[in-house]
């Protein structure tokens, strides 16, 4: 497979009265063509800001990408002019946002929102754009597509709106879709429908996807590779099997232990991660997970642990990665 997207040492910061918030602090990962890569982490870990940085949508002057490269098919997106970037957005890289309720324009019909992207990027006439829109709605499983085109977002349910968002994302046959918590706002039976749809479409059309989520179950079902983020850094990455069966970072381990699972015996007490996530404006040079980590030693305060290879494509940034007990040994 060929490399589609390569993010190297990305740093995005926000300049606030409380100090500089290092939302993304040296993130490196890549996405190959047709692959589904997950970025997992809790609120404020920088997973969404990473996505916005790729799309060059970080709101300036409050925030800015201060360092790093984002190579898309070999071109650095950070070096492009705004005009060139507009040709990439929606055309080569499309985005699906979390909130299906607010990410569609309430005063424009579904048809207009679908054809706008197609007409802008592909330069086709009205009739062809409308035909394409009907085709796309069929693709995302919406019946009665012709009539839907004249409806407005408030006519549609949350699941249907998210289908429209996916249709818009697919409209110009992008190489990469960035889905930021695409199903978090949806009910679980609708979530399953949407995820299954995205999985089938990406496979059939060969589109790569970055799926950003906090739901470990969703990741296990859909991702080829997983990046775990904490306080602006990727602290562990690998295949889904690596991450779930052989976690090599205390944070990953703690996350896996803190969710109740449907397939495990009941009655066991949950083992939560104590404490709170750190303030991103007040990070020191040490490991940011150290205050909540039961393996922490003096070395963890002195410097941030380097990202080291475990095996294959499994990497971890922890001095104590060999001391962890795997939680899933019995299960696997």
């Amino acid at each position: 497979m060929t490399e589609l997207l390569k993010i190297q040492g990305l740093k995005t910061q926000f300049f606030t009265s409380a100090g500089t918030v290092k939302a993304v602090d040296g993130v490196t990962y890549d996405v190959e063509e047709g692959e589904t890569v997950a970025v997992v982490g809790e609120s404020g870990c920088g997973k969404s800001v990473t996505a916005l940085s790729i799309m060059r949508l970080v709101a300036e002057p409050a925030g800015r990408v201060v360092d790093g490269n984002i190579l898309f098919q070999g071109n650095d997106l950070l070096q492009l002019s705004e005009e060139e970037m507009r040709k990439i957005r929606g055309n080569n890289i499309a985005m699906v946002f979390q909130e299906p309720m607010t990410s569609l324009n309430p005063v424009l019909s579904i048809g207009l929102q679908l054809t706008e992207t197609v007409q802008m990027h592909l330069g086709v006439d009205d009739a062809a754009a409308r035909a394409r829109a009907v085709e796309l709605l069929g693709l995302v499983g919406m019946s009665d597509a012709e009539r839907r085109l004249d409806q407005y977002p408030h006519h549609l349910s949350g699941g249907m709106r998210q289908r429209v968002m996916i249709a818009i994302a697919l409209s110009c046959e992008p190489k990469l879709i960035i889905a930021d918590e695409p199903t978090t706002a949806l009910d679980v039976t609708i979530q399953a429908q949407i995820l299954e749809l995205m999985k089938n479409l990406t496979r059939d059309l060969g589109v790569a996807m970055i799926i950003i989520t906090h739901n470990l179950g969703v990741v296990a079902r859909y991702a080829d590779r997983v990046n775990v983020m904490y306080a602006g850094k990727i602290i562990e990455s690998g295949t889904a099997e690596d991450i779930y069966h052989n976690p090599k970072h205390p944070y990953t381990l703690a996350l896996l232990k803190s969710v109740p699972r449907l397939d495990q015996p009941r009655g066991a007490k949950l083992d939560p991660v104590e404490g709170q996530p750190p303030d991103l404006a007040r990070l020191d040079e040490g490991c940011s997970f150290r205050p909540r980590c039961r393996y922490a030693t003096d070395a963890c305060a002195a410097s941030f642990p380097p990202t080291e290879l475990i095996d294959g494509i499994h990497y971890s940034a922890c001095f104590h990665k060999d001391k962890l007990d795997s939680p899933m040994k019995e299960a696997s």
Partner: peptide, 10 residues
């Protein structure tokens, strides 16, 4: 419809 956080089980 509830996904289980384990790729092998899934």
């Amino acid at each position: 419809a509830v996904p289980i956080p384990d790729p092998t089980v899934e």
